[in-house]
Structure formats: C-alpha cells, structure tokens
Design a protein around this nucleic acid. Structure first.
Length: 950
DNA sequence: AATTGCGCATA
DNA sequence: GTATGCGCAATTG
C-alpha cells in the first residue's frame, strides 16, 4: 500500500466561480480592461494544490452543454441560475490555454457535468488501486466518498480539508456517504434548482435521514409524520424521487481513465510565462516558477503516505508576534518593523501582528496622557459607546492612536457626572483647531460628543469618506477596508458582545483589557488606512472634493440629524383610523368578490385567487420565483377584467400608506427629543447622492392625494416657526443642457420657459401655446428618459406610444437637440477610454462593464455613464449649497435650522422674524452654488406643515 | 430571529 | 431606462 498512486481530479467551474467571487470586492482588472479575477483565482488554487500535494496524476474537469439527462427529467433544472458572469465566460478560454501549456489533461464530455465525469473517473481509478482526491468546494460530491475516494476541499481563509468517510458521516449525520443523495434530494439545492421537498430544509432533512434512512424510506412511512408536514410530504412524493435522481451523480459517463495520460508532466514553462505576461500576472508567474522549479526534488517525498494529504483548516502562523504590555517602553518602542509575507489567504490579525495598545488609568496617568495628546498634530480617535443611536448612547471609552501599531484607550466612568468631568479634561484636544482628527465615520463620533456638549474642531480626515471618493461602488466599512488595503482582519465586535438580538452585551460589560484591544485596534487600523488613502485621493484628483465638499458636509449632516424634525403624532393617529376604516370596507368587498377570505397582502395567496379561482387571464405571468406576478402594472392592466382589481389596488395602496408611513413614523420619534432624527448616509449612493434611513425621509409620498396627507404631519418646532421648502427646478435637465452646450435647450431655460412644453412644441412642431396635455406629457417622459439613458422600448412602456412611435419620437428629439445626442456619446466614449465618468466637481464613478461583450451588461454601464454625471453633478451642487447655507446660518447666529435634504430640495425650520432674510439667503446660495451656462432656479414655499410648504 | 423576494415610496 | 430604503410574507432556524 505504501506506493499507492494518487489521482487529483479538479472541478474546474467550482474553483473558477470561487476564485471569481473571492475577488468580487475589488476585481483584478489588467491594463487592457480585462477582468482576470476568475483566471487568477483558479490558477492560485491549482498551483496551491500542486505545491502542497505534488500529485502524480492530475486532470481538470469541465461541464459542457449542461446535463442533458437531468434537463430531460426536469425541465427547470438549473433554470434559476443567474447568467454566468461576464468575467467567468471570458476566463474559460484562457484557462484552457494555460492548462494545455501546462500539459494538464482537460476532461469534458458534451452533455455531462463535471460532477459526473469526476464520479466516473474516480470509480475507474479506484478499481486500478488509486486514491482519488476530488478538488472541489461543492458538497454534492460527498456522495462519492469511499475508502479510496476523498473530497479535497478549499476552506475559507486558506488551506484545505480532506473529507473521507468519517468526515462525511459527521458533517451530514449519515451512516453511509451514499445517503448524501437522499439528504440533498430532501432539502433541495437552490443553486442547482433541485426542488427538494417543500418545507424541508437542512434540519428536517437530517432528522428524516436519521429516522428513515432514505428518501424511499421516508415516502413509504409518511404515516409516521403528522400535521402540515405530513400533508406536504405526501403530496410531493414524485417531486421527492425526482429530486433524488437529480442529486445523483452519474457514474457511467463515456470517459476512460488512462493512467498514462493523467501523469503530471513538466509544463511548457516558456509558453505559460508568455500567457501570464499577456494577462499581466506578475506574482502568479513567480509562484508558478517556484512551484515547478523544485518539482523533481520534492516529488518523491510525499508519495509513501497512506494517510490523507496534509490537512490545514486554517493557516497557522509559525510565529506569533503578539506583544504584551511591558515589552515596549511607554513612548519609545517601534513595533512597525513587520516582515511577514502575506497573500490573500493569510490575513494578519492582532494576534499575529506586534502592537502596543494600552489603557489609561485615572489620575496622574490621564494627565500625562492628555499632555502628550495635546502635543500631537494629527490623531486618530474612535469612540466606544453603549449603542448605535448617538442620541441615547453613552460613552464607554475613547481610543487614540497617532503612531502605527500603538495607541491608548481612555475608559469612561458609568456615572454621567464623572464621565462629564473626564470629558472636560480632554475637551481641549477635541476643540483644538490645530490638531487634525482622523476617524472612520466621524459623523457618528461628532454626534456622540455633541451630546456631551463637546464640539470637534480642527481639520478632519474621515477614512470612510476618503474611500467613498476613491471607489464609490465598493463598501466602506472598516473591516472590508482593512482586509482589502492592509490585509488585516480586525477583531470583530461580535467576539466581544455576541451576536445581535437576544443576549447581546453592551460594550460596558466587556472587560477593560478586551475593550482596549478592540478599540485601539480600530483607531490604529483607521490611522493606517488614512496613510493609504491620503495619497490615493490626490491620484484620483478628488482631494478638492474631499476637502471642500464631503468633509465640511459631514458637520452639516451631523447638525441636521441632531436637530431632527417635529412630527404631529395626533394627526397621524387620526389619519391611521381613517385609513383603517377604508381598508376594512375594501377588505369586505374583496372577500365578497372572491367568495372567500384570504390575505390580500400576500402576493402568493392573491395570485392563486386571481388566476386559479377567478381565472382572470388564460396565461398569467409568473415571477422569477415561479409565483404569479401581481405587481401594480400587471394588475392595472387587468383592471377592466374584474371589479375586484380596482379594490385590490386601492387596498394595497392604502395598506402600504398606513404601514409604511402613517403607523411607522410615530414609532420613530426619539423619546429624548420628541422629534424624528433621520440618519443621512454619505457613502452609499454610487452617484454621490445622500440616502436617508431610520426613517427614510426622502420617500415621503407626494404624488397621490391621500399619500401626500402624510406630509401634513411634518411641522415646525412651535408657533414661532414656519417650514420653508426650497427646491431646484429641473436641475438635472439644466445640467445636461449646460454640459452638452445644447443651445436650444439653454435658451429655453434662460427665457424661463416651461421646459417640457417647450420640448413638445419643438418635437411636435406646434406653437408653444398649442401644445396639448398629451404632447407635453410625452415630451416630459422623453426628457426624463434622456437622463436615464432612454431606449425606445423603455419609452413605449412609459407612455401610450407604440415601440415605433416611441422610436420616431426619440429620433425627432435628437434631431431637435443634436448636441444632447453627441453629449451622450461623448460620455460613453469617455467611459470606454478612461474606465470612469465624472461630475462637474470631478467625482468619479468607475464603470468596469463599459467594454463588456455582453450587450445587456454593457448597455447598463452605458446608461450609468450618461446618468451618473448628471445625477452626481446635481448632488454635488446641492451639497455645496448646504455647506454655504449652514455656515451662514451659524455665522449670522440665526435661530433658523436646516432640517432635511431630499435630493433637490432643502427643508428649513424658519424662525418667523428671520423669514425674509432666510428666503433671500437660501435662494441665493442655492442658485449660485455652482456656475453653469444655464441659470439655476429655486422655488420657495412656506407653510405650517411640509405639505403647505410645497 | 434572521434572511429573501416582492412591491412600492421618493428624486 | 437612473439612484435609493422599507414593510410584509414566507421560509428557514
């Protein structure tokens, strides 16, 4: 047995997908704009396996043309799968070429999946006395495991685990790996679209396997089940057997295991190098050369093993460099000499990185610490609190760091007065104009400190905002940034306070030592990120945007959020009762029409009533999950078929209004202030807009009569105040007119014309005063369509026009405004050449799909290329206005406050005596925020509630 | 108790 | 056709 040969069979697509998604947060794009993530990911895995295991026999298996047999059994097989990503499709030919150059056999059989090919080959090899390792993360393969056939499974975080019979037994709670088929058949697999038994998930499937042993055993003994489950399983016997068949890997694929062909040969090193160079793989080339340079010497050593291959579930660093306190002198050590080599599978953590984090004890140490703190020029800080709501959260501690790898933690007493005393001691730091403050999401810290009456002054650097400008399409939380840019995994908050929900602790309950490690690490990491980002801001030419817009805006938003807005709860409560009456009436009418009671709010139940019971249409449309589609547009279309539809639509509208706004908003009133405090997200919208949540005050209804009543609930703080709403008129159209230099449209704006009527008059060739309502409405739709990147298809969907009428209208439109058309093309061309588009202030949006070969994907990127500069420029402009207005309100000591921003509108709580001054100030600052070749126009309205002020 | 899909509110 | 956030039902734990 000692010379038993080992065969490795690689499941190509599984590793390609895995590699592709490993890089999804920042895909590898080479200078030609190719996404090489999938190739890189796959090659990393393959070389890794070769290096670790030195297999003597190896083949890579691909799917081809899907599984004909399975599709015959079940037409929806894998039908639910999303289209293969572009980055994977383009990768496959490259991978074929590389494998050829490496002299690694590629196994494909038309009409079979890689699972089946691997299954068949492994059985044949077993007969010839081989040990086979199936290299795949896919757990379906567990059914193939025998004494001589193993799964060789990459695990998250690097390394591999080998699954033999004992591992499979444990993992799936089965007696025999073959029962994995029954298990998968019962629970189904959404990615392969194996239906499974309805209502059966992982837990229930395991229970059934333990109880009945197999699918057949279960189906023959359904009398032992009870209740709903019994009904469901009995009704799904056929589906159960079908699922089992679909889950079964075939072992009779017409392929042959020929030992000679599968021997791992010497690669054509030059050829591989050439391909890698073409793809611009530098590190991978080194890795490849290293792997094969030592091939002959290492080859013999691992062969005489009868046990499974080396198993590493997680990469264990050889040296743990954790530094306890005391190893470094207080202010003198230099722990930053890191020499560890890292790659994407071995991330550093606090345990593997030397650091010096220390808590500051009360008394003399605090005084000395503060003295030191005040002598710095730039300090990163991070507050730890008892919760996420800055209005109610109490300070637990503050971490400080101004040197990489080092930092201090200042714990706060629980007693509020004592905490305030400590705050007073460090107030000079926060209120120092000369010390720069660095942080991640400083808006939060500023709000917390404001509750302690501390203002954060001086220059700010927010790493979250910096990264938002550098790459707006990514996410910006600290953990992601640390992993991406520093190859470091920070201590997770969950390891300290537990998962959220039931028994989550407060930071206050965490031992001081752990608080210190966690909090100072955050400050340390944030400081390191700043070092990383400060240069990148310059490279992307976004330094000004950072310094002049996003950073100043952060203080403005913090102030608006702290301010909140007054809400008339009583009004909403009476509105709720009114709505409830109407809803109950409609409910009765609907039940009567349907002949039974059901949950109208359930799309599933509604679909069954409409399309199975009432049979309103012959061939109802289905959603992608196989349910009947009951969306607004579909029901509106059916309104003439049955009176029930009208009632259902009205019911839905009212129910939505009641649950989302009328009943939800009063619950969002903050007890401590009696007001509603939304949270503006400054880093989520890829275009540069803000978003609002908890609650979202940017989507309060206005279009329908009943909906807009909700706005009456937003009121001034008291009788001495009035609301003022100021909104930009047609700002996006003005921007596109100015950017495109389309004279006709610019003139219309300069003359103060109704732009939609003006457009209608030109495209329909009628005098301005003879434009019909319908013509104006169609012109308006096209005007908006242009901003979104129109198609004739989209336009005809939005209007009463046919596809060809819509096309004619667009053609005429472009003929009327020729420069608009060339502007659109210029944007797309710019994106193709540069990989991004930008706003008037240079805010970038990167469009990686702009050169995609997939027309659908590319089309979406092209629409983004048109829309992002327009939507984004509008966002830039209102941000400038907000900053200017805020500063003037502060400087002028006005009592008036800015409360809300809704993309093109600002809402103010105006102190009545200041009204005229405020109107002038607001209008002027908004209209002059940015100079375009088209005048900006702002409409002002006032009232005792938000509806009146509109 | 947390996640997912649907439907729908805004600019 | 662009950009968002949220409530409910359904489904799993």
């Amino acid at each position: 047995m000692s010379d038993q040969k080992r065969l490795f069979l690689v499941d190509a697509y599984a590793l390609i997908f895995r590699g592709y998604y490993a890089f999804i947060k920042n895909p590898r794009i080479n200078s030609k704009g190719e996404d090489t993530s999938a190739i890189m990911g796959f090659m990393n895995s393959l070389l890794d396996v070769i290096k670790r295991e030195r297999p003597d026999h190896l083949a890579v298996c691909f799917d081809k043309g899907g599984s004909a047999d399975r599709v015959e059994m079940y037409e929806d097989y894998k039908a639910n799968r999303d289209e293969t990503p572009e980055g994977i499709k383009t990768a496959v030919p490259h991978i074929y070429n590389i494998l050829k150059a490496m002299h690694i056999p590629i196994m494909v059989k038309d009409g079979y999946e890689a699972d089946d090919v691997i299954g068949t080959l492994s059985r044949q090899a077993e007969k010839e006395g081989y040990k086979t390792y199936m290299v795949t993360p896919d757990k379906d393969f567990a059914q193939l495991v025998t004494d001589n056939i193993f799964m060789y499974r990459p695990v998250f975080g690097g390394g591999y685990e080998t699954w033999g019979i004992p591992e499979v037994k444990k993992k799936f709670e089965v007696e025999d790996p073959m029962q994995v088929i029954d298990f998968l058949g019962m629970m189904g697999d959404s990615s392969d679209n194996i239906p499974g038994l309805p209502g059966v998930g992982e837990k229930t499937a395991k229970k059934f396997i333990a109880q009945f042993g197999s699918m057949e055993g279960l189906l023959a003994n359904t009398d032992q089940l009870k209740g709903k489950m019994k009904e469901k399983v009995e009704a799904s016997k056929e589906l159960g057997m079908l699922s089992k068949k679909l889950a079964t890997i075939m072992l009779d694929v017409p392929v042959e295991f020929n030992a000679k062909d599968f021997e791992l040969d010497h690669p054509d090193i030059e050829k591989v190098k050439e391909i890698f160079q073409e793809l611009e793989f530098r590190r991978l080339t080194d890795n490849f050369l290293k792997t094969f340079a030592t091939e002959t010497t290492v080859n013999a050593s691992n062969q005489n093993t009868t046990t499974s291959p080396k198993t590493e579930t997680t990469s264990t660093p050889k040296e743990i460099k954790s530094a306890g306190a005391g190893q470094f002198s207080l202010f003198g050590a230099d722990p930053s000499s890191e020499t560890e080599t890292v790659n994407e599978y071995t991330r550093k953590t606090a345990e593997t990185t030397s650091h010096f984090y220390q808590s500051v004890t009360p008394g003399m140490a605090t005084k000395l610490f503060i003295k030191n703190l005040l002598s710095q020029t730039s300090v990163c800080f991070d507050t730890e609190t008892t919760g996420l709501n800055p209005l109610t959260a109490e300070l637990v501690g503050i971490a400080f760091s101004w040197e990489i790898g080092k930092g201090f933690y200042l714990p706060f007493p629980e007693n509020r007065d004592e905490a305030q005393e400590l705050i007073e001691q460090i107030r000079p730091f926060f209120e120092s104009e000369s010390i720069e403050k660095v942080g991640q999401n400083l808006k939060y810290d500023i709000k917390v400190l404001a509750k302690y009456n501390v203002q954060v002054k001086g220059k700010l650097f927010d790493t979250m905002l910096a990264h938002y400008l550098i790459n707006p399409d990514m996410r910006h939380n600290m953990d992601v940034l640390a992993e991406t840019y520093l190859n470091y995994t920070p201590i997770s908050i969950e390891t300290l306070i537990g998962k959220k929900g039931k028994n989550q602790l407060s930071m206050r309950d965490v031992p001081l030592e752990k608080q210190t490690e966690y909090a100072v690490e955050d400050a340390d990491i944030t400081l390191q990120l700043k070092e990383h980002f400060k240069n990148e801001l310059g490279e992307a030419n976004t330094q000004k945007l950072f310094d002049d817009i996003e950073i100043p805006l952060l203080r403005v938003l913090a102030a608006m959020e702290l301010e909140g807005i007054n809400l008339d709860k009583d009004f909403l409560n009476s509105l709720s009762e009114e709505l409830n009456n109407d809803i109950l009436n409609l409910e009765q009418r609907i039940y009567a029409a349907a002949g039974e009671e059901f949950n109208i709010a359930s799309p599933k139940q509604l679909g069954i009533i409409l399309f199975e019971k009432l049979k309103l249409v012959d061939k109802p449309k289905k959603t992608k999950t196989g349910q009947y589609a009951t969306s607004e547009d579909i029901l509106s279309y059916l309104a003439k078929e049955h009176d029930i539809i009208k009632d259902i639509l009205e019911y839905r509208g009212l129910a939505k209004l009641k649950s989302t706004y009328v009943d939800a908003l009063p619950l969002q009133v903050e007890e401590s202030t009696g007001r509603v405090h939304t949270d503006y997200m400054q880093t989520v919208a890829a275009t540069g807009r803000l978003s609002s949540n908890n609650p979202n005050l940017q989507n309060i209804p206005i279009r329908t009569e009943r909906g807009r009543q909700v706005r009456k609930a937003f009121i001034p703080r008291n009788e001495e105040y009035t609301l003022l709403a100021a909104d930009y008129s047609q700002i996006e159209l003005r921007i596109i007119a100015a950017l495109s230099q389309e004279e006709t449209m610019i003139e219309a704006f300069k003359n103060g014309e109704d732009i939609h009527a003006s457009t209608a008059s030109k495209v329909f060739n009628v005098p301005l005063n003879e434009v019909t309502r319908e013509q104006r409405s169609n012109a308006k739709t096209v005007n908006f369509g242009i901003i979104y990147g129109v198609s004739a298809f989209g336009l005809s969907n939005q209007t009463d026009l046919s596809r060809s009428e819509a096309k004619d209208l667009i053609d005429t439109y472009y003929a009327t405004y020729p420069k608009l058309r060339s502007f659109i093309h210029e944007q797309v061309d710019f994106a193709r050449d540069n990989g991004y588009v930008q706003t008037v202030l240079g805010r970038r949006r990167y469009l990686k799909d702009i050169n995609s070969r997939n027309a659908v994907v590319r089309g979406a990127a092209e629409r983004n290329a048109v829309n992002a500069p327009i939507q984004g420029s509008a966002a830039d402009i209102i941000k400038i206005a907000m900053i200017h207005i805020y500063n003037k309100l502060q400087d002028g000591n006005f009592k008036t406050k800015m409360l809300l921003q809704v993309h093109d509108e600002l809402v103010f709580d105006v102190y009545k005596p200041e009204m005229e001054a405020i109107k002038t100030l607001v209008k002027s600052e908004m209209e002059n925020a940015f100079k375009l070749d088209v005048p900006l126009d702002v409409d002002l309205d006032t009232g005792d509630n938000w509806l009146e002020a509109h």
